[in-house]
Amino acid sequence: MNNTSIFFVMEDVMEQKKLILIEIEKCRKEMNDLSKHLDLSSDEVVSISRQLDKLLNQFEKAR
């Protein structure tokens, strides 16, 4: 792999992480908003929490 290829791979990873961060922020906000009106153990809050966990794991795995 030459330097140009490495640059494009790194750029792609950075873009992927940026998109995941946007989704994390949306999910975090939605969970926060829901938790103001629902119990933290409600199905809706737990579901969005699981979704947030998946996004955080995706972000950590993105290289």
Rank of each mutant, 00 (worst) to 15 (best):
E11G: 01
I48G: 00
N32C: 11
A62M: 01
R50N: 12
Q51K: 15
E60T: 08
I20E: 01
I48S: 01
T4P: 01
E11K: 00
Q16F: 05
L55F: 00
E60S: 15
E60A: 12
D39Y: 06
L52A: 08
N3V: 09
D43C: 05
I48L: 05
N2A: 01
E11T: 02
A62G: 01
V46G: 00
L52N: 04
L21D: 11
N2Q: 01
L40A: 15
Q58E: 10
M10A: 04
S35Q: 14
L52C: 03
L34K: 07
E25M: 14
K61Q: 11
R63F: 14
L19Y: 10
L40N: 09
E44H: 04
L19D: 06
M1K: 07
L38Y: 12
R28E: 06
C27P: 04
D33I: 06
S42M: 03
V45H: 13
S41E: 14
L56A: 05
S47A: 08
L38M: 02
N3G: 09
N32G: 02
K61L: 07
Q58S: 10
S5Q: 09
K36I: 13
E44P: 05
L56T: 10
R63P: 11
K36M: 13
S41Q: 11
I48T: 02
K26L: 06
E15H: 08
M31W: 12
M1F: 13
V13S: 02
N32S: 11
F7E: 07
A62R: 00
D39R: 06
K29E: 14
I20P: 01
D43K: 13
I6R: 08
L21T: 06
R28V: 02
R28C: 03
R50D: 15
F8A: 12
L56S: 00
R50E: 15
S49L: 04
Q58N: 12
E30N: 06
V45N: 02
L21K: 07
V9Q: 04
L55R: 07
L52T: 01
N2D: 10
L56W: 03
L40H: 12
M10G: 01
V9L: 08
N32M: 03
E23N: 11
E15L: 10
Q16I: 14
E11M: 05
I20W: 02
T4G: 04
L19M: 15
K17T: 00
M31A: 12
M14D: 10
V9R: 12
L56G: 00
F59A: 07
L19Q: 07
K17R: 10
L34Q: 04
E23G: 15
E15S: 06
Q51G: 11
L21V: 00
K61A: 13
M31F: 11
M14F: 09
N3D: 12
I22R: 12
R63D: 05
D39H: 05
D33S: 01
D43V: 06
E60W: 08
